[in-house]
Structure formats: structure tokens, C-alpha cells
Amino acid sequence: MHELSIALGIVKISEDETAKAKAKKVTKIELEIGELSGVELESLNFVWESAIKDSVLEFAEKEINIIKGKGKCIDCDTEFDMKFIYDTCPKCNSNFKGILQGKELRVKALEVI
């Protein structure tokens, strides 16, 4: 359940940034999570409540932007959608690809008061 570490990482960033901005609490948090990031949203949601308890995030609205996986074949340059990290090039079947997007795991923005 590494999602708990992820959730607590989000809490830490939020605490730090809220303090830096001399704000009191977060009203809304925007996250960017890629489909290939290795984080299960269900697990993240499961641990969320206990992770944010007594933190600046306790009453914050959570918005998650899911970022679709995209890769580019190194052998034939085809760009393609990726559902799994082991997806092969649909055109030439090569295993060699660069991941263009989908590995994101980011706190994008905080709305604070």
C-alpha cells in the first residue's frame, strides 16, 4: 500500500506550501496522476481520509486530473496510446518506446485561504 506514502507526501507538500503562503488551510487541491504512474486511485481514495486528518487538507475538495498514457516507438516513430507500461508499438510491434506522458504524479495547484 504505497498509496499511503503518496498521500502523506501530498499532505507534506500542502503543509509546506500553505505555511509558505501564510495561509491557514486548503480549500481545494488539484492533483495530476498519470495512468502509468503505478498509483491505484481506488487505494489512494481509500487512505485519503486518514492521511489528511488534522492537516491543512482536512476539509479540502480533491480534484484529480487523470493523464492518459502515451508512448512513442523508438524504432518507427509511431505515437500511440498506452494502457499498460508493457504495451508494444501497434505498427511494428517493437518493445522499445519512450513514454511521452502518463507517469505524472504531481500536486498541480492548491486553493488556500
Partner: peptide, 15 residues
């Protein structure tokens, strides 16, 4: 109750 938006753009695993 002025809301302020902080653009963080920070990787969660950065630490």
C-alpha cells in the same frame, strides 16, 4: 475569506 490559488507543480515523490 479570500481564496488564493497556489500553482505548485511539484512532484509528489520529490522528497
Amino acid at each position: 475569506h479570500k481564496h488564493k490559488v497556489l500553482e505548485i507543480e511539484q512532484d509528489i515523490l520529490q522528497n
